[in-house]
Simulated scan of single mutants.
Amino acid sequence: MRRFFSGWRRTSPGSDVFDGLPDGVKPTMIYAFDGFLNAGSAPRIALEHLESRDEGEVLHEFDLDDYFDYRARRPPMVFDRDRYADYERPSIELRLHHDDHGAAFLVLTGPEPDFRWEQFTEEVHELVEEYGVELVVGLGAVPMGVPHTRPSVITNHASRRDLLDRTNMFRAQVVVPASIQSVLELRLGEWGHDALGYVAHVPQYVAQVEYPSASVALLEAVAGRTGLQFDLEELRLQQAEAVADIHKQVEEQDGGDVLAGLERQYDQMTRSAVEPIVTDEADLPTGDELGEQFEEFLANLDRREPNAGE
């Protein structure tokens, strides 16, 4: 039996909370958490962009003491000469926002829970039912051997196959470490709710710095799937600046051979995803060769500011 948990903090939205949605259309919930699936800070940047458009209304705040390991991820405090002046309290919140045409949607974000994942998924489940959410969309990003000079690869997954809206370039069966996002999608599917996710593949050599190219790709995927309208011009400007900076660093660190190998591998996989072709395998770098080149390149690459979060 599902239950409400003490410690929940909830506001009471007005009857017009979902103004802007056509009659009979239910809202979409978009979520991402700072933690495991945050390569290039792509999901964080994407949701910050959505939330920067309007202040939003907090519909629900989770009791983080149930879920957060403060000693593993100590929140920052300000010490001013002889006193503690400020404390940046972490939070996980569900907020109401509106797109460019005024359509309402929900954003769930904050640090990835460390504890009580099943309790957390039940709490989200109650919110999905309470607000009549039609589709839950998770955003993630993982480091991969892909080049920054090609379009960002998006892997699509869902609680039901008929929810998928694209063919994945990578289609192998693998065992991966679990995250709260993967568990949440699994549980929502088991409870009969439509849930899907988009995972951006971030070049391994920039996974620890901000990579807005993947953020743009994630939001384009969300807009294409849900019909929500977002102005991405500011993010695209950040994308151009970041790509130019990466180009410069690759040249300075003599990473051209690694980049050329990744480009050939990417182009081969892209063509193969469309139709089977016969190529000369000798033209493609082997996994070991790319691995050795990566190690040498990454050892010399000047990192910029590291990710906030994990």
Rank of each mutant, 00 (worst) to 15 (best):
M1D: 10
R10M: 11
P13M: 11
S15Y: 05
V17P: 00
G20D: 08
V25L: 08
V25F: 08
K26I: 08
K26S: 14
P27K: 02
T28F: 03
M29G: 06
M29K: 02
I30E: 02
Y31L: 14
Y31T: 12
F33I: 06
F33L: 04
S41L: 11
P43E: 09
I45A: 11
H49D: 15
H49K: 04
S52Y: 01
S52K: 13
R53W: 09
R53S: 14
E55Q: 15
V58W: 00
L59D: 10
F62Q: 04
F62D: 00
D63F: 10
D63K: 10
D65T: 12
D66P: 00
F68M: 01
R73C: 11
R73G: 05
M77Y: 11
D82H: 11
Y84E: 08
Y84H: 05
A85Q: 07
Y87E: 03
E88Q: 11
P90M: 10
E93T: 14
H97C: 13
D100E: 15
H101Y: 12
A104K: 12
L106W: 09
V107C: 14
G110S: 07
E112I: 02
P113E: 08
R116C: 05
Q119W: 00
Q119T: 09
E122H: 07
E122I: 01
E123Q: 10
V124F: 03
H125V: 00
E126V: 05
L127T: 00
V128F: 07
V133P: 09
L135H: 11
V142D: 03
V142K: 01
P143S: 05
M144E: 08
V146E: 02
P147R: 06
R150F: 04
P151F: 05
I154W: 00
R160G: 02
L164H: 07
D165A: 10
T167R: 12
T167S: 08
T167F: 09
T167E: 06
N168P: 06
M169H: 08
M169W: 02
M169P: 00
R171G: 14
R171F: 02
V174C: 05
V176L: 12
A178Y: 03
Q181F: 01
S182Y: 07
V183G: 06
R187T: 11
G192K: 06
L196H: 00
L196W: 00
Y198I: 08
Y205R: 07
Y205M: 05
V206Q: 01
V209Y: 02
E210D: 12
E210H: 13
P212W: 10
S213C: 13
L218P: 11
V222M: 08
G224L: 14
R225D: 09
R225A: 12
R236K: 15
A242T: 15
A242I: 06
V243R: 09
A244C: 01
E252T: 05
Q253G: 05
D254M: 02
G255I: 02
G261M: 03
Q265F: 06
Q265L: 15
D267P: 00
Q268N: 09
Q268P: 00
M269A: 15
M269Q: 13
T270A: 15
T270K: 10
R271G: 13
A273N: 15
A273K: 14
P276L: 14
E281W: 09
E281N: 09
D288L: 11
F297M: 10
F297H: 01
N300P: 00
D302C: 05
R304Q: 13
P306E: 07
P306V: 14
